[in-house]
Simulated assay, not measured.
Amino acid sequence: MNLPLEAFSVSTGIVALAEIGDKTQLLAFMLAARFRKPWPIIAGILVATIANHAFAGAVGTWVTTVLGPDVLRWVLGLSFIAMAVWMMIPDKLDEDEITVPKFGVFATTVVAFFLAEMGDKTQIATVALAAQYGTFVAVVTGTTLGMMIANVPAVLAGNGIAKRLPIRLIHGVAASIFAVLGVAALIGIGLD
């Protein structure tokens, strides 16, 4: 498989799965309920995600220039396995964590999403995927698409859709993918 296509596909799928029930998806539900203006919220999520994941992708790509291949293999393998464990810990978002500045719906969404993504599972996953695949554009495009796949329906359909999703099962699938990526990295598959 072509490396950029693989990087794009894996990045899209794993982030879309990881985002289900994540703090930022809960934020999308809350913003949709509070503002009831889906298009500025969706645009804000897109802008915040591109900025956040571009930064994360740049860090991941930079890491590959600093760490030797053996150290990188262990760091990535253990990072992906840690992500698998982290996926099984449910996220919570307190409504008082969202302050509504007087910037409007779009700007509020950009700021809230950018800050909520800092150090979040999907941002850390973007760093690791960019380091794993070494292809910035494919990974950032994929992780951004994955975020939008998970969050656009959340904004459009609201909280009702979340109550019907088997979130534990979805997180289990995402955790399994992270674990497979971790084991593959540790044994040296796909790092050439």
Rank of each mutant, 00 (worst) to 15 (best):
residue 68 G to C: 06
residue 24 T to N: 04
residue 14 I to G: 02
residue 54 A to Q: 06
residue 66 V to A: 13
residue 19 E to K: 08
residue 46 L to S: 12
residue 13 G to I: 10
residue 48 A to N: 10
residue 36 R to Q: 14
residue 45 I to H: 05
residue 62 W to H: 08
residue 47 V to T: 15
residue 16 A to L: 06
residue 44 G to E: 06
residue 20 I to Q: 03
residue 20 I to V: 15
residue 53 H to D: 13
residue 35 F to L: 00
residue 12 T to V: 09
residue 60 G to L: 05
residue 39 W to H: 12
residue 41 I to V: 15
residue 31 L to M: 09
residue 47 V to P: 01
residue 58 A to Y: 10
residue 53 H to W: 03
residue 41 I to N: 02
residue 65 T to S: 10
residue 30 M to W: 07
residue 17 L to E: 12
residue 38 P to H: 06
residue 44 G to Q: 08
residue 65 T to Y: 02
residue 51 A to D: 07
residue 62 W to Y: 12
residue 49 T to K: 02
residue 24 T to L: 01
residue 39 W to V: 14
residue 70 D to G: 04
residue 47 V to I: 15
residue 26 L to G: 10
residue 44 G to W: 02
residue 64 T to Q: 09
residue 43 A to K: 00
residue 68 G to T: 11
residue 21 G to L: 03
residue 41 I to Q: 03
residue 49 T to I: 05
residue 68 G to S: 12
residue 56 A to R: 04
residue 41 I to W: 01
residue 20 I to N: 03
residue 23 K to T: 08
residue 53 H to I: 08
residue 54 A to M: 12
residue 62 W to V: 12
residue 23 K to Q: 03
residue 29 F to N: 11
residue 39 W to N: 04
residue 18 A to C: 06
residue 34 R to V: 02
residue 45 I to T: 13
residue 46 L to P: 03
residue 66 V to H: 05
residue 59 V to F: 07
residue 20 I to Y: 01
residue 29 F to C: 07
residue 35 F to E: 00
residue 41 I to H: 02
residue 50 I to V: 15
residue 55 F to L: 15
residue 54 A to H: 07
residue 37 K to P: 01
residue 61 T to V: 06
residue 70 D to R: 07
residue 22 D to S: 15
residue 59 V to K: 06
residue 14 I to T: 10
residue 26 L to I: 14
residue 38 P to Q: 12
residue 42 I to M: 00
residue 54 A to I: 11
residue 34 R to N: 10
residue 60 G to Q: 09
residue 17 L to C: 12
residue 65 T to W: 01
residue 61 T to M: 02
residue 69 P to N: 11
residue 58 A to G: 14
residue 24 T to K: 05
residue 38 P to D: 09
residue 65 T to E: 06
residue 39 W to S: 11
residue 30 M to V: 14
residue 63 V to L: 13
residue 26 L to P: 04
residue 68 G to L: 04
residue 53 H to G: 11
residue 70 D to C: 01
residue 33 A to M: 08
residue 47 V to R: 03
residue 25 Q to S: 13
residue 41 I to C: 04
residue 68 G to K: 04
residue 68 G to Q: 09
residue 38 P to R: 02
residue 13 G to T: 14
residue 38 P to A: 13
residue 62 W to E: 10
residue 39 W to A: 13
residue 42 I to D: 00
residue 44 G to H: 07
residue 70 D to I: 09
residue 30 M to C: 08
residue 63 V to D: 04
residue 61 T to S: 09
residue 39 W to K: 11
